[in-house]
Computed example of a mutant assay.
Amino acid sequence: MRTFRPACIARPSRDLAAAERFWVDGLGLRVLYRGAADGPGEHDLADRLVRACGTRVSAGPYWDRWGVTFADPDGYCLVLSTRAWSNG
């Protein structure tokens, strides 16, 4: 039997309702937390990640300028950023 570890996904969205339909209704994930902030690290999410065994790390000059990076207990990185995203 395969054992799966939980994964948390946090990202900005232009259309929160559409994103939630995709991730929750389509994929079956749950919304665990929803917050608003003016910038990375400017709300309690950063503190919550540290309390939950996350470690603040550097992901290089670009991400240090535009975001806050945390390593999870397995060493995988999560970058919180307020930078606009474009696939165009």
Rank of each mutant, 00 (worst) to 15 (best):
L16V: 15
P12Y: 01
N87C: 02
L78E: 05
R65I: 00
A10E: 15
S81N: 10
R48H: 11
V24G: 08
R56H: 05
G88Q: 11
G54Q: 05
G75L: 00
G28W: 07
E42N: 12
A84K: 07
D15P: 02
R30Y: 02
N87I: 01
A19L: 07
S86T: 06
S13M: 11
T69S: 11
A10D: 15
S13D: 10
T69Q: 02
P40G: 08
R51S: 13
V57D: 06
G75K: 03
A19W: 01
G67H: 10
C77N: 07
T55L: 07
L27W: 08
P40R: 07
L29M: 15
W85M: 10
L45Q: 02
S86A: 11
G28Q: 11
Y76S: 07
W63A: 14
R56I: 06
R5N: 12
S86N: 08
S58T: 08
L49Y: 02
G88W: 02
G26F: 02
F4T: 13
S58R: 01
T82M: 05
L78V: 12
R21S: 14
D72P: 04
L27R: 09
A46Y: 00
T69D: 02
G67L: 09
R11V: 08
N87K: 03
S13K: 01
A17T: 12
S13H: 10
R11L: 13
T82Y: 05
M1G: 14
S86R: 07
R56Y: 00
W63L: 12
L49V: 02
S81L: 03
C53Y: 01
